Computed example of a mutant assay.
Amino acid sequence: MPYKFSPSSLSLLKECPRCFWLHFNKGIKRPDTIFPSLPSGMDKILKAHFDSFRDRDELPPELKDMNDEVTLFDNAGLLEVWRNNFRGIQWTDEKGNLIRGAVDNILQKGKKLIVLDYKTRGYPLKEDTAKYYQDQLDVYNFLLRKNGYETEDYAYLLFYHPDKVNENGDFVFHTDLVRMDISVKNAERIFNEAEKVLEGNMPEPSDNCQFCEWVDKCNLHD
């Protein structure tokens, strides 16, 4: 049976192989949790913000330190497809398994593309904050290369967190631009591991999976 993956669904494999297996093979999904709407609203505004600078062939203030080494991806129609959660950048392997990812933005440096992803958070960055998005960036670059595009061996995370409120009530956000080395081999490893797990028997849960722990405790009382 062919599977459809995304960076977020593949992250479940790292969290708990059993939850991942049940999700895809049995349709048993983790309970939905409340998802704050603010990040989605920020994402929409940021895309419009960057698009306005692209239309003027300029870089926004957040990227001025790049000294015009890059430009914003100028194919607005294609970027709209790549941003769409139901379309995105896609690739299908010889077994029919599909992996799809929706990017926030793309930079250009000569003939090569660079992934730019926005992140909104409530607090300043910690030393290890960026590493949690490594797999996501690797998968995006994997997909771009599978579609015939050249990419640089790095990507960018652009973090926004609230800094202060001006006297007129306007919120001011602090930004941090973090360069991340990417590894397409890591994305390939994740994809291959996902197929291997799903084609096998139901695996053991991870040691720290609270969902599986809760189910196991309930079963003890049956």
Rank of each mutant, 00 (worst) to 15 (best):
P2L: 08
K4P: 05
K4C: 00
F5T: 12
S6Q: 14
P7H: 00
L10P: 03
E15L: 15
C16S: 00
F24A: 14
N25A: 11
K26R: 13
G27A: 14
G27R: 00
K29C: 09
P31G: 04
P31Y: 01
P31I: 04
T33C: 14
P36V: 11
P39I: 07
S40H: 06
S40R: 10
G41L: 02
K44R: 13
L46K: 12
H49K: 08
F50D: 05
F50R: 03
S52C: 09
R56A: 12
D57R: 15
L59H: 12
P61A: 14
K64Q: 10
N67D: 14
D68W: 07
E69M: 07
L72K: 05
E80P: 07
E80I: 00
E80M: 01
N84A: 09
T92I: 14
D93C: 01
E94G: 08
E94N: 11
E94Q: 15
K95I: 13
G96T: 02
G96A: 03
L98C: 09
D104T: 10
N105R: 06
I106E: 05
I106S: 03
L107V: 12
Q108T: 09
K109W: 07
L113V: 07
I114H: 15
V115F: 06
T120K: 05
R121P: 01
R121K: 00
G122Q: 02
D128S: 08
K131L: 13
D135Q: 07
N141H: 06
F142D: 08
L143P: 02
L143W: 00
R145N: 02
N147D: 02
Y149W: 06
Y149Q: 11
D153W: 06
A155N: 05
A155C: 15
F159W: 06
H161N: 11
P162C: 02
E167C: 03
H174E: 09
D176H: 01
L177T: 10
L177P: 12
V178M: 05
R179D: 04
I182F: 10
S183Y: 08
V184I: 14
K185F: 10
N186L: 03
A187P: 02
F191N: 01
V197I: 10
L198W: 01
E199Y: 05
G200M: 01
G200R: 11
N201H: 05
P203H: 14
E204S: 06
S206L: 07
N208T: 13
C209P: 08
C209E: 11
Q210E: 15
Q210K: 04
C212M: 07
W214V: 12
V215P: 03
K217C: 13
